[in-house]
């Protein structure tokens, strides 16, 4: 019921790709404006304009190589690691320019990321979750204990792991590792959570758990996820942006994108006719 009302409210404020950001009543947590990205001579993203509303799940969909993961890595500047990568235009977090005003490490603390492959550190479960807070200056054991428990609870894995926090994280199953990575990302209290095909390496049961988790996480975080799985986008996202060859073809409410897309290419893709 409430989600229906929310969707109704969102419908009033569809932020289409080309529209001026900020015009929508739903506050935009992050936005990209006239974003062009180059890997050497190759242009990976072409004039991308998108807004990511606060406390909503935005899904980026499109065929492989369309630039959706590239955009995600631009949002927390992980693309900085790629040699020859050049970004034009602006990425905004609460209106502040992520490339000119904000420090990269500060940005990444506020914009957390979960990768496609679960990548827990080769240390204990506890140390994995405590790594971020420790690195940012939390020293007291009691404080760390609280953060670890809260983060694991938020990632819906506390009950499974509470008795073996000292065990090496690499001994967990893939699904557990990925939820541990979500917990690790949450432990630094980010504002935005980026998920890069975070369920693609997992079995259906683990995927279902993480999807359910994402639905809960949006109450506290702004979630932006890349997915190859259109049903997944349909199930858990509020907004969807469809990418093709580095461009945003269409963006808007997930329901609209899937049921009444404007662009015929979107219609073909969501109907499974290519990709």
């Amino acid at each position: 019921m409430t989600s229906f009302l929310k969707e109704l409210a969102n419908e009033m404020s569809v932020t289409a790709a080309a529209e001026v950001p900020g015009a929508a009543p739903a506050p935009a947590k992050m936005a990209v404006e006239h974003l062009n990205l180059f890997y050497g001579d190759f242009q990976g993203l072409r004039d991308v304009n998108l807004t990511f509303p606060e406390n909503q799940v935005t899904a980026l969909i499109g065929p492989s190589g369309c630039g959706k993961s590239t955009l995600l890595k631009t949002l927390n500047r992980m693309n900085d690691l790629v040699e020859g990568c050049r970004v034009e235009g602006s990425v905004l977090l609460d209106g502040a320019d992520a490339y000119r005003t904000l420090d990269a490490t500060d940005l990444r603390r506020r914009v957390g990321m979960v990768f496609q492959q679960p990548n827990p550190f080769p240390m204990s479960i506890y140390d994995n979750v405590a790594f971020g807070p420790r690195s940012h200056g939390v020293r007291a054991k009691a404080d760390l204990d609280v953060i670890v428990e809260e983060s694991l609870r938020a990632a819906a894995i506390w009950d499974e792991l509470k008795d073996r926090l000292k065990k090496n994280a690499l001994g967990l199953s893939g699904g557990q590792q990925q939820r541990l990575c979500i917990a690790r990302a949450l432990a630094v209290q980010p504002e935005v959570l980026l998920l890069d095909e975070s369920t693609s390496a997992l079995d259906p049961i683990s995927t279902a758990k993480i999807e359910e988790l994402i639905g809960q996480l949006k109450e506290r975080y702004t979630v932006i996820m890349v997915t190859h799985n259109m049903l997944q986008a349909l199930r858990i996202s509020d907004k969807t942006a469809f990418f093709l060859l580095g461009e945003v073809v269409e963006a808007g409410d997930t329901d609209t994108i899937f049921s009444a897309p404007i662009d015929p290419r979107t219609a073909d893709y969501v109907a499974g006719r290519f990709g």
Binding site: L81, R110, M113, G132, H136, V188
Partner: peptide, 9 residues
């Protein structure tokens, strides 16, 4: 990369 994504230098 996992460490960097947590905002450490």
């Amino acid at each position: 990369e996992g460490a960097l994504a947590l905002g450490v230098d």
